[in-house]
Amino acid sequence: MPIYLYIDRRSAIHRLHPTVKVFALFVMFWSVYWVDHPLALLPLGVLMVALAQATGSWPNFYRLRWLFILLIFFTTLAWMVFYRRGPALIDLPIIHLSRASLVFGFGRGLKLAELLATSVLFLSTTKVEEFTAGLQRMGVPYRVGFAITLAFRLAPLFIDSALTVVQAQSLRGYDFDRGGPIARARRYVPVVIPVFMGALRKANNMAMALEARGFGIRAAPTSYIDFPLRPRDRLAFAIVAGIGVLYFAIYYFGYGAIAVS
């Protein structure tokens, strides 16, 4: 699985201010949280599909298609075991299949799938530096934002290093596929150690380079990257906030819940 899902397009969503995108992410969590019924969740699903089309994010959705399907299927199944309410259609010692448990379970699955879709859309349209800029605008300290950016940047480098070590060891005849799952996992330990030590060698130099450039002298350092707030960002902010208010209203007025007879 690639560590970057960002797709470089010039869509209106791509060009939104990072703070608006991070805010949209939180509003989606908020909106999904308040409603249980699949029908109430459906409009958000339709919105996701429209946004996926507008942002050209389908390749990422296609890549994760099995995750979406399994997420909905197994969440529905899990709640058939634990949500033992409503008149039973099938009542076995473990599974309690009722209309209520089906609707509740499917609703939970849909919720989780919509949350996954939100994160895929967010990562498809937002660069790492935009994400941290958005977090900093929302009050996350600069050093924390820096650590997040650096971790995002270093992870693919470590994966590449690990693959190089795997190839080198395989050329020498080391068999990574021998034994059961635990034995195979243990055979990867000699790969982790050189990657670990290589990372630590970088750490000292990186810290010195950062301090030489004055890292941490100011609480709010200057940046080459500037994200001006435009009228379209304000409009998007208002629309997103409206969605959040609408979904809370749906909950508040008693819609979106599952009726159990």
Partner: peptide, 30 residues
């Protein structure tokens, strides 16, 4: 500063092993 860099390195090492195994679910969706 060294601890900040070590924090990023720990996070990256964790993520570097975590992400490839996202597609090997024990209990899918869980």
């Amino acid at each position: 500063t060294r601890m900040v860099v070590l924090c990023a390195i720990s996070a990256a090492l964790y993520a570097a092993v975590l992400v490839p195994f996202k597609v090997v679910p024990l209990i899918p969706g869980v």
